[in-house]
Design a protein around this nucleic acid. Structure first.
Length: 517
RNA sequence: GCGGAAGUAGCUCAUUUGGUAGAGCAUCAGCCUUCCAAGCUGAGGGUGGCGGGUUCGAGCCCCGUCUUCCGCUCCA
């Protein structure tokens, strides 16, 4: 459809996802939960297949990459070491007029700096007045105006410190109001409440609340790999370079979460941390960029839907970083990140745990903290990429319309539908017989309700790549028609050859061969 | 988070100053038997997002709340 806007298209994809059992809003009967979604009967299959394809491509196809499955709960110190506790724990306040958001502590500190500047000015004035005989120390401890300002600073500091310690955000707001701090943009004092935006969800470990300690739901899976670096390296006798892969849920308390499953509070990551010798990071960085792009391209979508986006402003842990972006209906957006994380994580875990996280290099006879190249892809985003790229509204030659999901065959939720042309004359029995054989290899569906055309359309809508139709001729010569989702072409094939043909067409092997060459 | 819009059956939508809620499609049962949706008959399904208020009476008016969408803002 050429005249459909991308906004409408995206809306249609979302309703299609719900109508055909791919994605439901979480807790919908209770009005839903914002930015949390459930995968339905078809969605969970597609998601599982994507995960499996990633896992095979990363772990099964690479001798030097192994997988783990670390717990979501981790020791709280993990997140101090990773930088998540400090970096994402700020009290924020908005100015209602300018709509600008500020860190409350920064506003107050800026105000303190202004008072501090006043003091410095007094000191400088005095210095020029008194010349060589000037004693700054004495001046600072005796001058009335300096003392008054210093007293102000101390009082504010004390008040602010207390407020933060007891977590009294109203008091923080009151400080801003009492100090008559204005917004640099609007110049007004029209402030919202001060709010704490924590990136991480926390919960209690321990059944009795008084004895319990606060732990976090992991905001990324990577740290589960880093804290197990030594365990895996030693028990697996891994030699650098080697990688550890993991898929699993992560949780982020997003301030604004939107665009369907693109940004969710609970989501699944597929990550691989590749441990290397320091100094070799740029070549490995390039290597994994190439490898990962190849993986994406192996799905057979047009090359124009992917592009690299290099990060100019780097995160605290990285010395090179880029995204593989995908052309979603709402524009190019990050799908996978490839980061050169240096020895930031392992180094910090060494510091915080007091354990040596080093690798002994037998060639050089030296130990070092390995550098890390990370590949990190959002499974839910990958799901959305495949869903939106596969979705097509078609006008057929006879004037009718169909909605079809051209999901790569080996990822499709249902691989094959078995359909008796009519619901009598022994055709259902024959179809059941075929179904019972195929189900050992693939997830298949049997359908006998409604006209054959209607059933084909239903299978198109969930992306089933093949339909096997049993008709009267089948009973005579043991042949059926196989009907292709994308072309709608039908062929007559022998019943006995169905299994072989299907396996050939839906096997993941073909795609894996493509990326391993 | 701020501003705007919306929420009626599984879906798309009606119900013209407030007077006991309807259609199409879908679903289910039966009939028909036909290789690309839309044949016939019948049935089920809604305390109008939720809570409160005004009123003799609220899907409709008012307030709150939840969810979604759009714009802004934020994003390791």
């Amino acid at each position: 459809m050429s005249n459909i806007t991308s906004e409408d298209l995206f809306k249609n994809i979302i309703s299609h996802a719900k109508e055909y059992g791919f994605i439901f809003q979480s807790s919908e009967i209770y009005d839903g939960l914002s930015a949390v979604y459930d995968y339905g009967q078809n969605g969970s299959e597609l998601k599982k297949n994507i995960r499996e394809y990633w896992w095979k491509a990363m772990v099964q196809m690479n001798e030097n990459i192994v997988g783990i499955d670390a717990a979501i709960f981790m020791h709280p110190t993990t997140w101090k070491a990773s930088g998540h506790v400090d970096a994402f724990n700020d009290p924020l306040v908005d100015n209602k007029d300018s709509k600008k958001r500020y860190r409350a502590d920064v506003l107050i500190e800026d105000h303190l700096a202004k008072i501090e500047a006043k003091i410095s000015k007094e000191v400088e004035k005095a210095r020029t007045r008194f010349g060589d005989s000037f004693n700054e120390e004495t001046f600072r401890t005796t001058n009335a105006r300096v003392l008054e300002n210093q007293k102000k600073i101390d009082e504010i500091n004390m008040r602010f410190k207390n407020a933060l310690e007891v977590g009294d955000l109203n008091e923080v707001r009151q400080i801003i109001i009492d100090l008559e701090i204005v917004c640099p943009v609007s110049g007004t004092r029209n402030w919202t409440d001060v709010r704490q935006f924590n990136l991480m969800f926390n919960t209690q470990l321990g059944s009795v609340s008084e004895e319990s300690s606060t732990i976090y739901l992991r905001p990324e899976t990577a740290q589960g790999i880093f804290v197990n670096f030594l365990n895996v390296q030693k028990t697996g006798r891994m030699k650098i370079p080697f990688g550890i892969a993991q898929t699993g849920k992560a949780f982020r308390n997003e301030i604004v979460a939107r665009q369907f499953i693109f940004r969710m509070r609970e989501f699944e990551q597929m990550e691989m941390q590749f441990f290397i010798k320091p100094g070799t990071e740029m070549e490995w960085y390039k290597h994994w960029k190439d490898v990962r792009l190849k993986w994406h391209r192996s799905l057979g979508f047009p090359e124009t839907v992917h592009r690299f986006h290099d990060h100019l402003k780097l995160a605290h842990y990285a010395n090179a970083a880029c995204d593989i972006e995908f052309k979603f209906p709402f524009g190019f957006k990050e799908l996978e990140g490839i980061h050169s994380r240096t020895d930031f994580d392992l180094g910090n875990h060494e510091k915080f745990s007091g354990k040596k996280l080093q690798y002994f290099d037998p060639d050089s006879g030296q130990s070092y903290v390995p550098y890390v190249i990370e590949t990190s892809i959002g499974l839910d985003r990958m799901f959305l990429a495949i869903l939106s790229q596969s979705y097509a509204e078609e006008k057929l030659e006879d004037g009718s319309e169909r909605v079809v999901l051209r999901i790569p065959e080996f990822l499709a939720p249902v691989k094959c539908a078995v359909l008796p042309l009519v619901k009598k004359d022994g055709l259902p029995e024959k179809a059941r017989e075929i179904m019972d054989r195929l189900k050992f290899d693939h997830l298949c569906q049997y359908e006998e309700k409604d006209s054959i055309g209607k059933r084909y359309r239903r299978q198109d809508a969930i992306g089933t790549p093949f339909c096997i139709t049993v008709d009267h001729q089948t009973l005579e010569d043991q042949t059926v028609t196989i009907r292709y989702r994308d072309s709608m072409v039908q062929e007559r094939i022998e019943v006995g050859s169905i299994e072989k043909i299907l396996i050939d067409k839906v096997d993941m092997k073909k795609a894996l061969r493509q990326i391993s060459g």
